[in-house]
Computed example of a mutant assay.
Amino acid sequence: MAKRSDTLETVLLAVELLRRIPRCRKVTASELHQQLKHAGMERELRTIQRQLEMLSEHFEIERDDSSKPYGYRWLEQAKALAVPNLTPQESVLLQLAEEHLKNLLPPRLMKSMDAFFSQARRNLGPESSARLEREWPGKVRVVATSQPLLPPKIVPGVFEAVSEALYSNHWLHIEYKNAGGKRTSADVMPLGLVQQGSRLYLVCRYQGFDNERNLALHRIAAAEVSTLTFDRPKTFDLKRYDDDGRFGFGEGEKVRLAFRIERSAGLHLMESPLSTDQQVVERKDGQLEITATVIDSSMLEWWLRGFGEAVTDIKKLPANINKN
């Protein structure tokens, strides 16, 4: 019975290694050892080395032994490890997921999914019979709710370093240039990565401080992952941080907002309310009188100003005031 268990463990390890060996570059046994460790598979380095030697003999894997440490990669024309039983529906889901997750996952996690994404693309290729599934990505689209902007350029290597430090709970050393052009060096504790429109922001704490700050990734001139780890603060919650309006340039303060708006301009608020406690009164003069509990922020101000003269009589009262 023990022998069966050992055999299964060997097979599972071989499959994981085959999935993680790349095509575009060589990977060492030490790198794969760390990848498996992060994935919860604790194995001795020597065990992985022996497995790689065996796999390179039986699969189309190039072993570069010209210098140590040895490097491994799939040959360019190799089929690599096929992902079985991926249906056309699963393929179209993965194709959409790849597009929308590429800026929200560490590059090495995305690379670990390469076999799935490649199989999905093959399944939906021009030679496949999955015509309806192949057409689906051209039938759906996420559109902007404001003037579309091209994403700002991020210095090469910054996103990789930031996402790796965030993923592994390592301190991050950065060179940061603010909007005024002032450049500073700092060690930060990465806590979250947020995409807002075309921009990416790092939520972090500066060393020696216990408050959070948002840093635009395109303003980070350089980033280096430290060898030092940290314990993620139990009091920090990225969803709550967002709910408090921190990306609307607010301080988390709730107010009871009241305003009047022309019906034609405010009709969409009856379909998509500002809050769960929103109240709407239709006035005889054709205007809508709206009250709702919201986070007070600069974004709220910009939103209200966007209506111009269609919005009048704006009031902000404490959120705990009697609503009746």
Results as ranks from 00 to 15, higher is better:
S30M: 12
E31N: 12
L32H: 11
H33G: 11
Q35P: 00
L36V: 08
G40E: 07
E42Y: 02
R43E: 02
R43C: 01
R43K: 04
E44N: 11
L45I: 11
L45T: 01
R46P: 00
T47S: 14
Q49D: 11
R50P: 06
L52M: 13
E53C: 06
E53K: 12
L55A: 06
L55I: 08
S56K: 09
E57S: 10
E57R: 14
E57N: 07
F59C: 10
E60W: 01
E62N: 03
E62I: 09
R63A: 12
R63I: 04
R63Y: 02
D65A: 14
P69C: 06
Y70H: 13
Y70T: 08
G71F: 08
G71K: 06
G71H: 07
R73P: 05
R73D: 05
W74P: 02
W74G: 04
Q77T: 07
A78C: 01
A78R: 01
A78H: 01
A80S: 08
L81Q: 05
L81G: 05
A82F: 00
N85H: 09
N85T: 04
P88I: 01
Q89G: 10
E90W: 00
L93C: 09
L94D: 03
Q95M: 10
L96H: 05
E99T: 13
E99A: 14
E99D: 13
H100W: 13
L101E: 09
K102C: 15
K102G: 06
K102S: 15
N103D: 15
N103M: 12
N103P: 08
L104K: 10
P106F: 06
R108V: 04
R108H: 10
L109G: 00
K111W: 03
S112H: 07
A120K: 03
A120I: 06
R122A: 10
N123Q: 10
N123E: 14
G125N: 09
S129H: 08
E133Q: 14
E133Y: 13
E135C: 02
E135I: 03
E135Q: 14
W136A: 06
W136M: 15
P137L: 00
G138P: 01
K139Y: 00
V140F: 00
R141C: 05
V143I: 13
S146H: 12
S146Y: 09
Q147E: 15
L150T: 14
P152I: 07
P152E: 11
K153Y: 06
V155M: 13
P156A: 09
P156I: 03
G157V: 06
V158Q: 09
E160Q: 15
E160A: 14
E160H: 12
A161V: 05
S163L: 10
S163Y: 10
E164V: 07
E164M: 12
L166A: 07
L166T: 07
Y167F: 09
S168K: 13
S168R: 15
N169E: 02
H170G: 01
W171R: 04
W171C: 04
W171H: 10
L172G: 02
L172D: 04
I174R: 01
E175R: 15
Y176F: 11
